[in-house]
């Protein structure tokens, strides 16, 4: 895997985040986040619940406005980008959501052909063939006439992945691929992500809190904690990091907050 990351370091980054600050109301969720994802790498954004990783992903997808800071995707600035430019940019980006987010009123096949139908002028049979090809890639050949409600959790994630890659994106975002899946299905999905990168040469950003899955596929990792980046480096360097908080996260040790009796009382009474 290191050969891939070495090769990619020479290319232009596909994601650049500089000093990103984000708030939910008055609560600061992201605090000065800097992140670079190089072309062709599998980059894992990792962190526990409430670390801000989902918020970071929503910012990267242009679904939330930043308080301050800059985000560049495939060389395009997200903030202030014209609608039509954003539209073009989004055609080069695939996203697989945590719950799949397949449109429940459509069959799996219709879901996968949706981006093609909206953005290209291909005829029906070509679209159907392309959808079937992508479904074959994710081992879901023959399921195009199924409704999303008829599929299992793992199948929904794979179908969502097929929809995400149907336009052959340069950049793929994957939100929590392992969440809610048993270890075997989760491992299959990891293999699929690795295969996709090799076959389609895309850059893949995966947001996850599953350590095992993360180390299985990562070229580089960014570890978030309480809205700040603890470390952003190759998987090996993250594993051997001297940062105690990183080690706590990697070894599943809960954060122990030292609080004396007076401070605890003050917090309870709100004074």
């Amino acid at each position: 895997m290191s050969s891939v990351s070495d090769r990619m370091l020479t290319s232009d980054p596909v994601v650049e985040v500089e000093n990103l600050v984000a708030h939910y109301g008055s609560h600061k969720v992201l605090d000065g986040v800097n992140l670079t994802v190089n072309a062709g790498e599998i980059h894992i954004i990792m962190g526990g619940s409430g670390s801000g990783k989902s918020t970071l992903l929503r910012h990267l997808l242009g679904l939330r406005r930043v308080t301050s800071g800059r985000i560049r995707l495939l060389g395009h600035e997200l903030d202030g980008v014209h609608r039509s430019e954003l539209q073009e940019l989004r055609k080069q980006i695939g996203v697989s959501f945590q719950g799949g987010a397949l449109l429940s009123s459509m069959t799996v096949g219709e879901n996968v052909t949706l981006p093609l139908r909206e953005h290209t002028r291909l005829d029906e049979s070509t679209m159907a063939i392309m959808a079937r090809m992508k479904l074959e890639v994710v081992n879901l050949g023959g399921f195009e006439h199924f409704m999303p409600a008829q599929l299992s959790g793992g199948m929904i994630k794979r179908a969502a992945l097929a929809r995400a890659i149907v336009m052959d994106p340069k950049l793929l975002f994957f939100d929590e691929p392992s969440a809610g899946l048993d270890p075997v299905v989760s491992a299959e999905l990891d293999e699929l992500i690795l295969r996709l990168r090799e076959a389609m040469h895309m850059s893949i950003v995966v947001v996850t809190h599953e350590l095992e899955s993360a180390f299985r596929i990562a070229d580089r990792m960014t570890v978030l904690d309480c809205g700040k980046i603890l470390i952003s480096d190759t998987a090996d360097k993250v594993r051997n990091s001297a940062n105690s908080r990183v080690q706590d996260l990697l070894n599943r040790r809960p954060r122990v907050e030292e609080l004396d009796a007076d401070a605890y009382l003050a917090r309870l009474t709100g004074e």
């Binding site: 929503r58 679904l63 055609k91 959501f97 719950g99 987010a101 949706l114 909206e118």
Partner: peptide, 17 residues
């Protein structure tokens, strides 16, 4: 509302729809 909850609206948006 159901589409919002299940992230289908976000999915449409990121697909450029």
């Amino acid at each position: 509302g159901t589409m919002v909850v299940s992230e289908e609206i976000d999915a449409l948006r990121v697909m450029g729809i």
